[in-house]
Design a protein around this nucleic acid. Structure first.
Lengths: 226, 226
DNA sequence: CCCTCATGATAGTATTACTATCATTTAACA
DNA sequence: TGTTAAATGATAGTAATACTATCATGAGGG
């Protein structure tokens, strides 16, 4: 799995200056940055604080990532790659398209509950980061160049798998891509709302987010089929 | 309308130190900040640049807003208040709930195409800001305190109106609030995707975003009714 | 034993995000 | 008309951030 992830996180132009997964210091950077961004939030997170936490110099961190924005893109990309991996795993051997689609939606919209078995990346913390900070990775003026450089390809791949799945069940759906990205992004946003702006949600909605999105997608599909 | 907006933007604890709508300098701050954030993006926007653009001192701006985060919250709050105003206007005198709901969704998800008739606020630019930057207003570690202070009340009010509308058409809908906020937020995100990550969308989806969300909501409702 | 490379340590610069102070203008009022 | 308070403008200064540059050290490989 480790290896699969390493491969799938690769992009056209790397977000990093030096592969952080390849060295001990690099892995400590990933480990500690996930911890710090999770507790401090991206705004209060700095490379100085990260260096102190690791017990290294600021300049050493700059040898791996140009700036914290690129580090965020790396982490978020890793997260979506992992979700894609999990999606493939969760839907393996399910041939019936409808069943497959339901499983897919559940896989993508289910929160991360365990730390995972990666030595240096706390999946749960990474998931929280993805919920709160992932939008900041692309909501910038540099989005077009970064998009060209392939920085968001893992997110796109995940959306595309779901889109394909939707089309398998409903080949004439008019907006499969839009529906797919709405599910992937919407699940994150709704999770944030449930946590912090609960008046925007029903009571106890948190563990029913997957149900909601399954309902929504199939409602949209059935509206076509009828 | 001017006046209506002024009232509706008020919150429990003001985001500003001094009401920017009340003075000439304040209005110039609003006007120029919308222009600058729109062209530079929030990250590259600073109070210094704003002061230069206005031809005033940085310290004068700090008399109105504590920092650029609060200024952003103010602008985004203004935007959602305007959208609420427009929603009320667009659906006035429509009594039939189903028709009303469709109109509501279209009102909320339609992009802003004209500058509006406010002297000092360019609505189109403000809309672009809302699309690209609004998430940053609440995706922070301070969200809970700021929520308590009422900083996001205009967004919540808008979502709540749509939720009520959904319930009028479908009283036993299981997730009206979640559906409503998914429409309001999703319309913004999809607009950003359509502009910058078009591979996540169908071709020419941009002007069909309202159609899509109308379809989606009614599909979700009809799935219940059947 | 030498060479290279990764890291560590230190220092320095430009910009940002403010805060403080004081002079000047204006508007208000007596 | 003179007096005063409030708003603004101008200048300066501080602490933190986001880097960049330089050099020493130490470990591993040939």
């Amino acid at each position: 799995m480790q290896r699969l992830m390493q491969v799938s996180v690769k992009v056209t132009e790397p977000v990093f200056l030096k592969d952080p997964q390849a060295t001990d210091l690099g892995r400590r950077i990933l480990e500690q940055s996930v911890g710090l961004i999770d507790t401090l939030g991206l705004e209060h997170f700095t490379f100085r604080k990260l260096a102190n936490a690791i017990g290294t110099a600021e300049s050493s961190i700059y040898r791996y990532f140009e700036n914290k924005h690129n580090l965020l893109i790396y982490l978020v990309g890793w997260y979506w790659s992992w979700r894609e991996y999990k999606l493939v795993f969760d839907t393996a051997n399910i041939t019936e398209p409808t069943k497959r689609l339901e499983r897919s939606i559940r896989s993508i919209t289910t929160p991360v509950t365990d730390k995972g078995n990666f030595e240096y990346l706390d999946l749960r913390a990474l998931h929280r980061i993805a919920v709160s900070e992932s939008g900041k990775a692309y909501m910038t003026k540099e989005v077009d160049e970064e998009h060209k450089a392939g920085y968001f390809s893992s997110f796109k791949r995940l959306c595309d798998r779901l889109r394909t799945n939707i089309l398998e069940v409903c080949p004439d759906h008019p907006y499969p891509a839009l529906l797919a990205s709405n599910v992937v992004d919407g699940a994150m946003v709704q999770r944030f709302f449930a946590e912090h702006l609960p008046s925007l949600c029903e009571k106890n909605v948190k563990n029913r987010i997957p149900d909601h999105f399954v309902d929504l997608v199939f409602a949209s599909i059935n509206a076509r089929v009828r």
